[in-house]
Nucleic acid binder design. Sequence first.
DNA 1: TCCTTCGATAAGAGATACTGATGCGCTGTG
DNA 2: CACAGCGCATCAGTATCTCTTATCGAAGGA
Lengths: 294, 294
Amino acid sequence: MEPHLLRTFVTVVHRRSFSAAAEELGYTQSAVSQQIAVLEADLGVALLRRRPVRPTPAGERLLEHAGPLLLRHRAARADVLRAAAGPAERLTVIASPLACTPAIARGLTANRSVATLRTVGRERVAERFASGAADLGLVDGIAAPSDPLRLPDVGTPARIGVAEEELVVVLPDRHPLARRRGLALADLADALWLRADVAVPVERLREIAGVGGFRVAFGYDGEDVHTVVNLAAAGHGLALLPASVAAGVPLTAPRVVHRVEALYGPSSDRAAALAAQLRQPPSSTPPGTSAAGS
Amino acid sequence: MEPHLLRTFVTVVHRRSFSAAAEELGYTQSAVSQQIAVLEADLGVALLRRRPVRPTPAGERLLEHAGPLLLRHRAARADVLRAAAGPAERLTVIASPLACTPAIARGLTANRSVATLRTVGRERVAERFASGAADLGLVDGIAAPSDPLRLPDVGTPARIGVAEEELVVVLPDRHPLARRRGLALADLADALWLRADVAVPVERLREIAGVGGFRVAFGYDGEDVHTVVNLAAAGHGLALLPASVAAGVPLTAPRVVHRVEALYGPSSDRAAALAAQLRQPPSSTPPGTSAAGS
DNA sequence: TCCTTCGATAAGAGATACTGATGCGCTGTG
DNA sequence: CACAGCGCATCAGTATCTCTTATCGAAGGA
């Protein structure tokens, strides 16, 4: 179960080929074959069926663990390295698109210690932060008010909420519901939605509404929020977005908010200071640092 | 960063000695010295100060990651092995003491497929389950109604809530508050409490009350809930316990409940079935399986 | 000061983990 | 049905790694 064996295993499954994995990893096919054999011998279990190459049920389980395990590995390494490098002079910030609310953007530009800002998809932020690509991570998501976001576990970076905001349903002006004062998500399950992961993924809608439905009328794969707003306004489907991004009808039920959280290494004082500074005064002190506890 | 190096590192820090760690792990002192040297060379960072042996700041960070990382390692291995072993004939269940509510205990005894039940401290359940010591884990804890418990991350075992119950403050009959209909936790911050991790740890009280205080009058280190009840009734300090365990005054604020969750491997159908069966009818369907999501 | 303790280092034996060559079963093709 | 091509397994050989034993040297206590 050494990390390099896991990495090889993952690659083999992904490429569905020992030889292709070998090439990708810079080994010979023989080495890959032996590595898999070692892994299987170590666990005493067949992990792969050959020809065609597919994971066995046990292999599927291992596959599911391997990703997070390797991610955590990288996170640990990055964290140690950050601690050893000492406080960063200038900070690199990585954020999901919607995490850069106007106020946060202002906070970032006002702060001379920020060197670079990079945005990536919401699911990638924690991962990229963990890999050491940035000193501060900003992720957005949907949660009950003052509840922490559910993020892939990546060790114990300090984590604080920096902003919470109302959500609105964006719909075209002529839409029958456009004049409402508020909307309940469950009532919109039968409507046609925009699939746009940069806003709120459709599966997440089902999850927070607790019902199925939410058929997709149109899919948008980019990262540009503006485009999503325009598509929604043009009637390609509904979109759920934070109020500061677009005009729309407030979401009144369930009681969820758009929340932005900052991730930073416990050893980076500058990042901690910046995170604290980004924390918006209007939002009453959101819950503090997180840690695994019973 | 191979697992065995991490294990050695952790042991060295823990024992504060290379030689002692070597003995504990069955290596020579020389081997341990070399392993630490390899780890430090790999990361390019000094992890330990020698004489006396103490972690550097970078070492502290690594130490914090190493535990969860190794735990996850074991969890992955155990999960793969469980998957390979096929559905268990008879199940081993591991539970924290308070997780065995009367109804759950009944469910377990009614179920002939259960072979063994073992209880361990609340913090150990997830860990022991992850290590493959049991097919089903039952953990209790305090949470907002229908919120999942916060458990150490251990991969993606399926997780369902099986019971939720009101909490009561146990106090002696002659206590001035004993006749109240309900109590707010924050109002009890100045009272003297029983430190008994088998009930609710004092730190957790501070956490959910959101205030300090909760001074400890008396400490109990065992695992026996009955003793805690007796101690509380005898006036050694207050205790917060699920209503089914002891008579007491219901906790009315904050709105938290005693919750029991079942952990089981995704590949163990028997365990899943048992978990579903333990699920108590009175509690309206608590939120389902968990997984890391954005 | 001397002795003990404890970690670092050197040297060598054994285990491990690669490469390159070859074997062998499957699959597709004529 | 035979055969070629593909792809994983296996074998042999070598380089590397990871231990052990032996020894050194610095720090701390008597």
